[in-house]
Design a binder for these strands. Structure first.
Lengths: 146, 146
DNA sequence: AGTTTAAATAGGAATGTTCTTATTTGGGGG
DNA sequence: CCCCCAAATAAGAACATTCCTATTTAAACT
């Protein structure tokens, strides 16, 4: 996994700085999905001079490289990043009450539809589907968002 | 249109303040989709004391009422809001180069899929699909985001 | 018209994220 | 081994958005 990422970086002309390596090795772990601020906090002991912007910059890069998936709108504390663990393309559902994000392992978008859009002149690069609702634990709450 | 919105507000116990009325009558116009800051700027002559937070608060409310659709990630200057003109549920495609957002008038999501998610314990309230790519004008550019 | 009360507001502080700029550095080539 | 330069960085300013709190106000009910 890590070697794959290093190869991908080299191939595209990106460097492997100590900061970048630290961020990558933290973020490719399975386990809780982290925010930029959390990553920064965890790395501070070993990299006391690392700026928060560096974390953001690298998370964006890793997203563009297809290594991470950003999960926006989950919880009040910002975007969380999930490693792409060889798994196929998928999406997420976010609970509007507790902020918990869960994976949905199928993409419900008609592939034919994507082809139609391409035929209309667009070059599609990616898409993002977010489902919002209330999870089983929070469902009793009845605030209506529609 | 305006009367419909007023009725919906009254029905749900929301008030009709001068600021809210001004925001609504500006935002339901067809034409360029506006950002919160732009709306604030346009209303400042008549409402010099209106706070930007009021604009955001009302845009959020109108979104929850189904009057507006937020289009995030289009351009560098923040979320733009589009009035729901009686039209059916739809989505957008955003050009990653010029930021232009276009409407896609069909929802390519399998309704059966949504039912499956509900059966798994979630109460779905809304969903958001954003397509990202390069529009016909910007297509020659070949920066790869995947 | 006067009272009441929850909703809405202004103002400012706080938060998450991106941008700017000057400086440093990884890593390829002489 | 040293030079070079584009890539990456730190630091802090800037930006979009949300939160907090004290004050005002729409509108329902006398």
């Amino acid at each position: 996994m890590l070697d794959e990422i290093k190869a991908k970086l080299k191939e595209k002309g990106f460097r492997l700085t100590p900061q970048r390596q630290a961020i990558i090795s933290l973020v490719i772990n399975p386990g809780p999905k982290l925010t930029a601020a959390e990553i920064w906090g965890l790395l501070r002991p070993k990299h006391p001079d690392m700026s928060l912007d560096t974390v953001y910059r690298n998370l964006t890069l890793l997203t563009e490289l297809g290594v991470l998936i950003p999960i926006a709108g989950a919880g009040k504390d910002g975007t969380r990043y999930e490693p792409v663990t060889h798994s196929r393309h998928h999406h997420h559902i976010v609970c509007l009450k507790c902020g918990e994000a869960a994976c949905i392992d199928t993409c419900p978008i008609n592939p034919q539809f994507l082809a139609t859009v391409q035929n209309q002149g667009y070059q599609l690069l990616r898409h993002n589907l977010e489902l919002f609702g209330l999870c089983a634990r929070c469902k009793p709450e009845d605030r209506c968002y529609v």
